[in-house]
Design a binder for these strands. Structure first.
Length: 753
RNA sequence: GCCCGAGUGGCGGAAUUGGUAUACGCGUUCGACUUAAAAUCGAAUGGUGAAAACCAUAUGGGUUCAAGUCCCAUCUCGGGCACCA
């Protein structure tokens, strides 16, 4: 007898899919479409891990499900290839990042194909391909033209290990998100995208998205809208007035001192000969302090500037202090301290013996002008690194920036011998002397040597998928109108950064007339992590990594791997890998195979009810993303087919229903049965049976079960009498019945005694 | 500190609208097949108890005919933010 040999079956079908290209998508106006994508991977040297498999398989289950339902489905694939791992590898080994990337992509592609994903391989994209980053540069220029890409000198997070600045979103607990080194503040001239221009719209439209509440809340908190007022305080002695931001302008009568941040721009004008040295000393110390130190030691520090301001409400002279608990980047970098109302101000006042005055509240608009402030800052995009998309800017003799004309794009990454950045604050691009020189409109200029944050490259890739080979535009208007916005986007990371940036670019390009929608992603599925069997995060150093390719090659095959990862638990929860449960899923698929290839079909259709019930359950579960219970329902179905005997229709139905999870096995089964893969329909009439079981409770506890005809469910009196006549029930009802409650929907009768 | 999630058998988890708690899988035990093992097939499996029955969804209260599900308080774990005025 033949046996279920997954590797053989999978090789066969993967070859067929490679040759016949059934997943190629083309626009068919009038036919309903569905576009799905995962967050494209960074192709590391280690190859696919089980987390990728979970992420990609969720998308694949939906892709195949909607294809079987007859929609025109697009499921593309791509690689996010710029970034530090490839560059650091290049520095270490001297291998060009271009070459490493090529090798890693080839490996990822090969592995993804072994998982049997229904990908339109004609739409593969790679962010470090000049044909792609040409258009990333074009996007930058559009933002630049509108003043939304600009340069500013300010204090920025600097990673001394990676020798580059970082965005706020890339600093985690005071450490670099890539190398984990503590970051410092450094004053530098850097490029920014003006995301704050869209703060209100980004905030308002969150509620309209079919996204997990968790992500929506995180984005709302990140944007951090505060409604308050700006109030001017005159400085005694004629220095420029100080504007503070406060959410409580009504507490101004209690403002007994002002505090400015160490980085406050007009700090010098407040200093006196007596205080200057001490204050500048304090400022220098504060700037040197790493974020870690600031967090570990939250005890208030600060010094008196020597100047006083006038409280416009009380007309009293109040001292101006400088302290690092006031942040330069938020509000105006200066606050009015109301120690009677605010805990932080109170702590500061106590420590430095400043007056604390109980305050009567006044009208909010009496002394200030209403003002809205955001926690979110503009997006810092320049990086002093080699392996990124060059910023398409050049500087004239006077140092003024000029955009590279669009017909001179792409600005190619120059070849260099040494990829290592130095501490000059410039990337390795500065070493390509010939490349640096560029002529724009006849004028000799010097190129910008910073590259773009990788998040810029991933802020528009979903639109490139619509027309990945277009040479005349970043995306084709007809294609984008047909396919997008994306219907399902699936990932397990980047809750704030990427998912906020792509919304920002979408709104910008919609304003410019390039996009016919203002939100790029309709539904977001945020999947959980897969941990090691011990419940800990998988990591090379702990040696607890499960390699998905090993699972396949061990003989389980891709169908088992895919189905197991869908069965492991709710898709949005973290789960621990359990090698023994993998075996359980393999046994299930083996039983499916046996039904199709080694069992005689039953001639009597005893399973029509469970067949229709299973179709309904699996269909609805996939709609709800309850992939684990969909698989469980299929297991129940198979168990029942073993018991009662399976008809040919049962096996065809089973094959169709498992195809999203185990496409190779299902294809093999459908081929044997000469059946198509059209998604089956259920008929409600087979879901109701002639007799039903009625639960009889006494005081809410299950005491008896009655089998009655389905029609009797409408007859409360009859059911009640039947129940009261029941032997088991009568044991409890000797002392009388207070009342009965019948719930036909729940098929339940509760007797209260 | 603040804002979200979560807590159910030996384990992963189910219970969709307040209505039979523990689906499905793993593990364990027993049986069939086999010289034997593996594989496969079948049965049992929350706890206590001889049974009747009682007790069980983190803990303590409450609402309800009925609570894993709703309300209040507490504990534990996970995630996010963290001097944002």
């Amino acid at each position: 007898m033949e046996r279920y040999e997954p590797l053989k079956i999978e090789q066969k079908w993967q070859k067929i899919w490679e040759e016949t290209k059934p997943f190629r998508a083309t626009e068919e106006p009038g036919k309903p479409k569905m576009m799905l994508a995962e967050m494209f991977p960074y192709p590391s040297g280690a190859g696919l891990h089980v987390g990728h498999v979970r992420n990609f398989t969720i998308v694949d289950v939906l892709t195949r499900f909607y294809t079987q339902q007859g929609l025109n489905v697009l499921r593309p694939f791509g690689y996010d290839t710029f970034g530090l791992p490839a560059e650091n590898y290049a520095i270490k080994t001297g291998t060009a990042p271009q070459d490493v990337t090529k090798t890693n992509i080839a490996n990822f592609r090969k592995q993804a194909k072994r998982l049997g994903y229904a990908i339109d391989w004609n739409r593969e994209i790679n962010t470090s391909d000049p044909e792609y980053y040409k258009w990333t540069q074009w996007c930058f220029l559009q933002l630049y033209k509108k003043g939304l890409a600009y340069q500013k000198e300010s204090y920025q997070w600097w990673c001394p290990e990676d020798q580059t600045v970082l965005a706020n979103e890339q600093v985690e607990n005071g450490k670099c998100w890539r190398c984990g080194h503590e970051v410092e503040k450094k004053k530098m001239k850097q490029w920014f995208f003006k995301i704050t221009e869209y703060a209100d719209e980004l905030l308002e439209e969150i509620d309209s998205l079919e996204w997990p509440e968790k992500i929506k809340t995180m984005q709302k908190n990140w944007i951090g809208r505060s409604v308050g007022a700006e109030i001017d305080f005159e400085v005694v002695g004629g220095a420029p007035h100080i504007t503070v931001f406060t959410t409580r302008p009504d507490t101004i009568y209690g403002a007994t001192f002002l505090v400015v941040a160490p980085e406050y721009t007009a700090l010098d004008s407040l200093l006196t000969d007596d205080t200057r040295e001490k204050v500048l000393d304090y400022k220098a110390t504060a700037l040197k302090k790493s974020e870690i130190e600031r967090q570990e030691n939250k005890e208030k520090t600060g010094v008196f500037t020597g100047s006083y301001a006038i409280n416009p409400a009380t007309k009293e002279k109040i001292p101006i202090w400088v302290a690092d608990y006031v942040l330069a980047g938020y509000g105006t970098g200066a606050i009015m301290a109301v120690p009677a109302m605010d805990d932080r101000d109170h702590e500061f006042a106590e420590k430095f013996d400043l007056p604390i005055v109980e305050t009567e509240l006044c009208d909010r608009d009496l002394f200030g002008t209403p003002k809205v402030t955001y926690r979110m800052r503009d997006w810092l995009i320049s990086r002093q690194r080699y392996w990124g998309c060059p910023i398409p800017i050049a500087y004239d003799k006077d140092g003024n920036p000029h955009p590279i004309p669009e017909d001179q794009l792409p600005v190619l990454i120059p070849e260099v011998d040494d990829y290592k950045p130095d501490n000059s604050g410039r990337s390795a691009l500065a070493k390509a002397k010939d490349w640096l020189k560029v002529t724009i409109n006849g004028e000799e200029m010097t190129r910008e040597t910073d590259t773009l944050d990788g998040y810029a490259c991933s802020s528009w890739y979903l639109w490139r998928y619509a027309s990945p080979h277009d040479e005349d535009a970043a995306w084709n208007q007809d294609a984008i109108k047909y396919w997008e916005p994306v219907d399902y986007y699936c990932g397990g990371d980047h809750a704030v950064a990427h998912l906020l940036y792509i919304r920002f670019w979408c709104k910008f390009f919609a304003d410019e007339g390039y996009l016919p929608f203002r939100e790029p992603i309709k539904r977001l599925l945020y999947n959980g992590y897969i941990n090691a069997p011990d419940g800990k995060k998988m990591s090379k150093s702990k040696g607890n990594v499960i390699d998905p390719l090993d699972v396949i090659n061990d003989g389980y095959g891709a169908d088992t791997l895919r189905t197991y990862e869908m069965f492991i638990g709710p898709y949005d929860m973290d789960a621990a890998w359990d090698p023994r449960s993998v075996g359980g899923v393999y046994r299930f698929l083996n039983r499916c195979w046996t039904l199709a290839f080694a069992t005689e079909y039953s001639r009597t259709d005893k399973t029509i009810n469970i067949r229709h019930k299973t179709i309904k359950k699996v269909t609805e579960d996939i709609h709800r993303y309850n992939f684990n219970t969909a698989v469980a329902a299929l297991m129940e179905y198979v168990n029942e087919l073993y018991k009662s005997g399976a008809t040919e229709e049962d096996v065809i139905t089973l094959a169709k229903l498992i195809k999203p999870f185990a496409p190779h096995l299902a294809s093999e089964m459908l081929e044997k049965l000469s059946a198509d893969d059209e998604w089956p329909q259920w008929d409600e009439k087979y879901l109701v049976s002639d007799t039903v079981e009625v639960i009889v409770q006494i005081n809410g506890k299950l005491r008896a079960k009655l089998t009655v005809s389905a029609d009797d469910l409408n007859d409360e009196k009859k059911i009640t009498n039947l129940a009261l006549a029941d032997e088991k029930v009568q044991k409890y009802t000797k002392s009388g019945v207070k009342k009965t409650i019948f719930v036909p929907k729940a098929k339940l009768l509760n007797i209260v005694i």
